[in-house]
């Protein structure tokens, strides 16, 4: 049967607007519950531990090796111009402004976003979310709000840790492999570092944390069709979470540093 290509485009555009609208309404409702009692401090604490504490190893390792390889690669390039002394500054600015928040965000999107989508998706397909409603408990408040707040509050903490470990990684390679003077390296690290460099990274982290949790919760909450549906929701949560991290990284960088 011959189909009109305009019809296909129209369907695609309408589906896109529909999806964005549903996500926006979900985000609006969930966010509005963040400032309306009752809140669940025990659940928030559990999510903060789940997101913050249990992500420390993966985020720490990511920061460490990012800092190490950054120092190594910078040396390879900058030694050609005899500009090795700028390596500490390059490492600390790259880590605090970009690599810390983005790499931590991507790792958390994979670890936490997937876990949220799988857990909430399983609750959806096993009627546990319906059960919450029948027990006079708002699923947005009980399930979504602690995760959104947990992501929003804990990702800056994780990024701060990644920043410190990343700079330390650059220090280790510079001192023990490239033969830098430790005191001079530390002095150069902090000489050109400004508060805004760190703050911009932490602001990014808070936004990324919110977006990753939002994607995990949204896709889990709307999953259907049993195990296959939960798997699809998990994949979608990770993919959309990672893409939003990259998109909003540019948007926030533009807002902070564009002249």
């Amino acid at each position: 049967m011959k189909t009109n290509p305009l019809q296909g485009i129209g369907h695609g555009v309408l589906a896109l607007f529909g999806a964005v609208g549903r996500l926006a309404l979900f985000a609006l409702e969930a966010t509005s519950h963040c400032v309306r009692p009752p809140l669940y401090p025990r659940l928030l604490l559990r999510q903060m531990v789940e997101i913050g504490f249990y992500s420390l190893p993966v985020v720490g390792l990511t920061g460490l090796f990012a800092g190490m390889v950054l120092a190594l690669q910078s040396y390879t390039g900058f030694s050609r111009f005899s500009a090795e002394s700028t390596i500490p500054t390059v490492v600390v600015l790259s880590i605090t402004r970009e690599l810390g928040p983005v790499l931590a965000g991507l790792m958390v999107a994979g670890r936490v976003g997937a876990a949220m989508a799988a857990e909430i998706g399983t609750m959806r397909v096993t009627e546990q979310i319906d059960a919450l409603t029948t027990l006079s408990t708002n699923p947005h408040k009980y399930l979504i709000v602690p995760r959104l707040l947990g992501g929003f509050l804990m990702l800056p903490f994780l990024v701060l840790v990644a920043d410190i470990i990343g700079v330390f990684g650059g220090y280790l390679v510079s001192i023990y492999k490239l033969g830098f003077n430790p005191e001079a390296y530390i002095t150069n690290t902090f000489e050109f570092l400004e508060v805004m460099d760190v703050v911009s990274g932490l602001v990014k982290a808070a936004v990324f944390g919110y977006l990753i949790a939002l994607m995990g919760c949204y896709h889990g909450f709307h999953s259907k069709g049993g195990a296959q549906g939960v798997g699809k929701a998990t994949t979608n949560a990770v993919v959309t979470g990672a893409i939003l991290v990259l998109v909003f990284n540019y948007v926030i960088t533009e807002a902070f540093f564009a002249q």
Binding site: M123, Q128, S136, T137
Partner: peptide, 30 residues
């Protein structure tokens, strides 16, 4: 909802909570 109790087909127990908290959920939360 506060006047209704519901037994689901699959029981729909909350996996993350022990049995007593599942049973007491409505008492604590609602």
């Amino acid at each position: 909802m506060r006047r209704i109790g519901m037994l689901f087909q699959s029981a729909a127990l909350f996996d993350s909570l022990p049995v007593w908290e599942n049973v007491a959920f409505g008492l604590i939360q609602a």
